[in-house]
Amino acid sequence: MSRPGGKQEALLALAGAAALVAIAFGAPWLKFVLTIALAKGLAVLGILLLLRAGQVSFGHALYVAFAAYVVAFLAPLVPEALVLLPLAALGAALLGLVIGLFVSRYREIFFGMMNLALSMVFYSLLEKFYHFTRGTDGIRVQPPRVAGMALTRDGYEWALFGIALGLCLVAGWLARIYLASPMGQALSAIKTRETRLEFMGISARAALLFAYVASAFLAGCAGAIIAMTTRHVTPLLGYWTASGELVFIAVLGGAGAVLGPFLGAIAFELVRVYAAATLADSWQLILGSVLLGVILFASRGLWGVIEALLRRGRRA
């Protein structure tokens, strides 16, 4: 099967990034939406890694929420975005390692439900320990400095948008390298021929654990950016619907390439914003219809549509 080459994908990614910057210039109020979309794209990129191994996590909002609360708790102590972000992401990765050691024993529905259960435990902790987390009221996050500079509101938004965009490009590039490596290629062997891996001397559990920790790290990056962008964290970040949303976006964008999650996330957030503006109470109806359309007519997601167009273009 012919796939678009690395160069083509890189060009598309850069063109997409340039288009986003242009949109952010043209419609400044969309900067916020796009930053959130890019952050979610990072988390969905992690979901994609697990999907390659045939595993669906219905609990990855756990890592998004964990990192967001790390930012909320540490922001008064270290008011610096470039410190908070890696700290929160590494924290999420560490939590992913601990939980991953446990959930990497499970496959398919058990894997999905185990993640869901753990994320709901964490959600309950956030909600019930009011004294510490302020429950459903959540915690306000004071805007931290960026590279030592206290920015104006607009400058701060641009900085976060830039950080998110840069992270997406780097993460997409690294994920692509990882997926082409033996460790990445072995993920699809976990999906179909796990015993074969063991009989080749490879621990399938360890291979899955690596992808899991990477996915927790990516979700952590997402959580930190979301916390610093919305400047308010609540337990809802870790609710099961938030986890479901990540899987929804993964299906919408397509798992065939690392651009899929970002396409999906941007489409998702834009549809949500415009749908909510036109049909305030039933925007889910529009989102649902979009997903239904994708599943029925473009089962490889938005990326699959673009891939098909590219292939046709090359043949012509």
């Binding site: 390298i177 082409a180 033996p182 290629q185 072995a186 080749m200 001397g201 490879i202 690596f210």
Partner: peptide, 15 residues
Amino acid sequence: LAVAAHAGFWSPWRA
């Protein structure tokens, strides 16, 4: 993949 499994599997950086 089998060659890699024998020669050096655990590197996420190289194709």
